[in-house]
Amino acid sequence: MFKILGPQRRGFTLVELLVVIAIIGVLVGLLLPAVQAAREAARRMQCSNNLKQIGIAVHNYHDTFRQIPGNVSVRQTIPTGGATPTTGPSWLVAILAQIEQTSAAERLDYTGTDFSDTNGSGLPNRNWKVMSETKVPGYNCPSSTLPKERFQNTSNATRQWDPTAPASYEVQVPEYVASVGFYFRPGDTDFDWDRYYNETATWTGYGWLQDDGFFSMKNNRFQERRFASISDGLSNTIAVGEHGAYMYDFDGKQYDARPGRGNGAMWSANKGYFEWGGPRYWGQTANVTVPRFPNNSLYSGNYTQQWETTLHNGFRSQHIGGVQFLFADGSVRFITDSIDFVNVFPALTGRADRWVFDQDF
């Protein structure tokens, strides 16, 4: 007599289960770097697109106003009686209407206002509300882990002008910085004092205020310029670069050295005066840089590399191996950290240095 048996069920043994888990772990280990690399590639592409949009905005601004946007000093003469100069809008504010932020641009009041909102000037910030409500996604690199906003105290003048103003409010900190010149002339490692005597540079106490780059600083000496002044060629001149990474000391201590992290953040040009005499802080300016040190370099101990309104903070990014730059012709190029910082990079930041080089970058 035969006995009919049903199908037998057999589960995994412990050894088999451990082998499967081990294989899955190996596969995850192999795939994770690829996934992370793909994500970084996407972020880098978005960063490149941000710079391209800024480039289009700058060109549209030039087409409309026949000049390149720049940082604006409100007054054209030095204030007397110990008063602090009023701070005007930055170049990032100038192109708001061209970067699809027309509503914010139309709400701004440029008269009798202090974009940094400090107590020293005695003027209110009439734009505190629009500044706190407006965030421009294209002004931040998606790869950057730095804070995107800062809280700042509302000045006494602002609270008197608008009793509804809060004690503090939040403003956006940008991670793209304009190039306004070079610290050392291309091919040199010593500062050229003829630039001071020819009134193209002045010592401000916080670095050298320059007028050799693409962007201008509209103050009591430097004025707006056109594309025609870029005699080196638009495709050979850096307009904007990234500053979206911490600066590190040799012992690992980190610093947020972004040129737009101070009062007013992306909105403020700070003071930016071209003067030798008087209080040296009249040369403070924001959201621009005159790089004195290589891209992504460690903190050298020189304070002009570190302070929020100095001109020598340089360029930084969290993209491995280099920094992305917008050139004056609207193209975006990735420049490695190993670029020749004596003969090549200064020439790229100058608009009319006529320096010829045959190295790739």
Results as ranks from 00 to 15, higher is better:
G11F: 12
G11A: 10
T13L: 03
T13Y: 01
L14G: 08
E16H: 09
V20Q: 07
A22R: 01
A22C: 11
I24V: 15
V26H: 00
A34E: 10
A37W: 01
R39D: 11
A41C: 01
M45D: 12
N50A: 13
G55N: 01
F65R: 03
V72T: 11
V72I: 15
S73I: 02
S73Q: 12
R75H: 05
G81P: 12
T86G: 00
S90Q: 07
L96N: 04
Q98W: 06
I99C: 03
E100R: 14
Q101I: 02
A104R: 02
E106S: 15
R107F: 01
L108W: 05
D109C: 06
Y110A: 01
G112A: 00
G112W: 00
T118F: 02
R126W: 04
K129A: 10
V130I: 15
M131S: 05
S132C: 04
E133D: 15
C141W: 07
K148Q: 14
E149L: 14
T154R: 10
T158F: 05
D162S: 05
Q172C: 12
F184N: 09
D194G: 04
R195W: 03
R195V: 02
E199R: 13
T202Y: 07
D211C: 07
F214W: 05
F215Q: 06
S216V: 12
I230E: 08
N236S: 15
I238P: 09
A239H: 13
H243V: 09
F250C: 00
G252W: 09
N263S: 11
A265G: 02
A265I: 04
A269Y: 00
F274H: 04
Y281P: 01
Y281T: 07
Q284E: 15
A286E: 02
P294C: 05
N295E: 08
Y303M: 06
Q305N: 14
Q306M: 14
W307M: 11
E308H: 11
S317N: 10
G322V: 14
F327Y: 13
G330D: 10
V332I: 05
F334C: 05
T336D: 12
I339N: 08
F341E: 07
F345K: 00
W355F: 11
F357P: 01
F357A: 04
